[in-house]
Simulated assay, not measured.
Amino acid sequence: MNIARIVVLAIALSAGGVAAYLASGMTDSKAPAPAAAPVAQLQTVDVLVAKADIGLGQTLNANDVIWQTWPASTASGSFIRRSDRPDATNQIAGSIARAPFVAGEPIREAKLVKADGSGFMAAILPSGYRAVATEISAETGAGGFILPNDRVDVILTRHLKNPNPTQPDIVVSEVALTNIRVLAIDQAPKEKDGTNSVIGRTVTLALKPEETTHLATARQAGTLSLALRSIADANQVAVSTNEQIQHPSINVVRYGVTNPSTAATK
């Protein structure tokens, strides 16, 4: 019995040895794994971005911005790079934001202006424009839903005496100015805390020099109302002030019936 066990054990050991030998031979015959291809190094640059949201008219300081790593291929030439201006955080201190920035948005010089002692409105006013204020009310200001940076049409309404004393006066309305940017409502040049309506007594408009005199004349001639324009119409080419003066589109109201017509001045 012991001899049989010894024989079985010897056979098992022999079979294990043969299996180990075959396995080592197969392992040695495998070709070595190819080396991993080197990963291309992505080129990056440090770009100056807004550390948090920056509102319209906010004066920047060094703590409002931070350097952030960007892929060099996506960094626009208008971005401020640390390699070009390592001291940019201090250089832009004191600048005023002419347009809002969101957190993480790259800082661009085109959206900043140095006040150099001037007031805020003079700093953000585009070159060649004038800031002119005029009175409004909830009724004449689109119910208070006009906000800074919206675009409006200025409508002039006049009451004309009817030559026939037995008939009611004639009401005439015309578009005095079109596609005008609103700079501020009262003293607020921006929305506050997500406000979607502002009811104020005065509105400040950005006008070209020739439009300022036209607005002053219209203000004395009758009542001014503001018509809010759609965002889709903001980039529409506005009719020049001279054309508006020469061929104003008017609505004449007689006996409660509105009749559109055009009045041409000579």
Rank of each mutant, 00 (worst) to 15 (best):
V239E: 08
A218S: 14
H214R: 14
L226F: 13
L215W: 04
K208E: 15
L207W: 00
S240E: 13
I231K: 10
S240V: 05
A221Y: 01
T213Q: 11
A234C: 00
S240W: 02
T241I: 09
N242K: 11
T212W: 03
L228F: 02
I245V: 15
S230D: 05
T217D: 11
R219T: 14
A234M: 04
L226Q: 06
Q220V: 00
K208C: 04
Q244T: 01
A216N: 11
A232S: 11
T223P: 06
T241E: 05
S225Y: 08
A227H: 10
Q220K: 12
T223F: 14
H247Y: 13
A232L: 12
E211S: 07
P209A: 09
V237G: 01
I231D: 14
V237C: 00
A232N: 08
E211A: 09
I231C: 03
T223I: 12
N242W: 06
L224E: 03
A238T: 05
S230I: 02
S225P: 06
L226K: 09
K208T: 15
I231A: 15
A238R: 13
N235R: 11
H214Q: 08
T213G: 12
T217M: 12
E243V: 09
A238K: 08
Q246L: 14
N242S: 10
A216Y: 13
E210I: 14
A218R: 04
L226H: 09
V239H: 07
A234D: 08
Q220R: 14
S240D: 15
L224F: 05
Q244R: 13
L207S: 04
G222H: 08
N235V: 09
A234I: 07
L215P: 00
Q236K: 15
A227V: 02
I231M: 15
S230F: 02
I245N: 10
V239M: 09
Q220D: 11
A227C: 00
G222D: 09
R219E: 13
A234E: 10
A218E: 05
V239F: 03
V239T: 13
E243M: 13
A221L: 08
E210Y: 03
Q220F: 02
V237D: 05
T213M: 10
E211M: 05
D233A: 14
T212H: 01
E211C: 02
L226N: 10
N242Y: 07
I245E: 15
L228N: 03
L224H: 03
A216P: 07
